[in-house]
Nucleic acid binder design. Structure first.
Length: 226
DNA sequence: TTCTCGGATGAAGTGTCTGG
DNA sequence: CCAGACACTTCATCCGAGAA
């Protein structure tokens, strides 16, 4: 059995079992345990999150092994179309994350579906209007919202006022052109909105804030109606 | 020359036994 | 029940051999 075939088989084995021992794999593939150790290193180098524990064996790190998802052609098309809409968005981090997600979708399609999708990709273009200045913070902000993590930002307001703020990020919304972050600002001791394209610098702290009973709906009712 | 493989050896985790 | 000693298991590293 060629090495490539063995690596594939080991990966399948890892996905189907909780823990596999090098000796079992060595016996199954008729090679030495030393060879299996090298194979594991190769898989690890290739980006497969393999964990190893002496006395136990090898295992896939939690989260890597996901249940198989098959997309229909129409679902894949919908995702591709959404990616084109997202390209008109002004946050580079979101565009980047979405594009890698679409690449993963493409990877699981069969050849015919891939060809159709590639044709569709050429026939859908982003609207030609000029994009506003790009930000690169949205992915970090989204994660901070869900982690309840305090952010430190350097922000330039519409009146060109430059401030450093410690904020508790609560939500984001998208206008036609920009993403806006709603957060509790510890400088002003109140809720504030921050345009992501005006955030000059953003630092994730290690500090967490207590969860707030906050919904965007409540926020808009309270702050937008007057 | 490069790639693949295996032997020897060491480091570290796990399980079992024994004595207090 | 707990701690220490020991054997066993498993992975990591070094190095050399053989094949392409």
């Amino acid at each position: 059995m060629k090495r490539l075939h063995r690596l594939t088989a080991i990966l399948v084995k890892l996905q189907s079992k909780k823990v596999v021992q090098a000796s079992d794999l060595a016996e199954k593939f008729d090679v030495s345990t030393r060879t299996i150790y090298r194979d594991m290193l190769a898989l690890s180098d290739a980006g497969v999150p393999i964990g190893a524990e002496a006395g136990t064996g090898y295992f896939l790190v939690d989260g890597y092994s996901l249940p198989p998802i098959m997309f229909t052609e129409k679902e894949a098309n919908a995702l591709l179309t959404a990616s084109k809409i997202i390209e008109t968005n002004n946050d580079e981090s979101l565009i980047s994350d979405y594009n890698t997600a679409v690449e993963k979708v493409k990877a699981i399609l069969n050849t015919t579906q891939k060809e159709k999708l590639e044709l569709l990709e050429k026939r859908i273009v982003s609207p030609p209007y000029k994009k506003s200045p790009a930000s690169t913070h949205l992915s970090v902000i989204q994660k901070a919202i869900t982690d309840l993590r305090i952010l430190e930002i350097e922000y330039t307001s519409a009146s060109k006022e430059y401030t450093k703020r410690t904020i508790e990020p609560l939500g984001v919304y998208f206008t036609n052109t920009i993403w806006v972050l709603i957060a509790y600002c510890r400088l002003r001791n109140d809720y504030r909105e921050f345009r992501t394209d005006r955030i000059v610098n953003l630092i994730e702290t290690s500090e967490l804030f207590p969860p707030k009973f906050f919904t965007l709906e409540d926020y808009f009712k309270k702050y937008m109606e007057h």
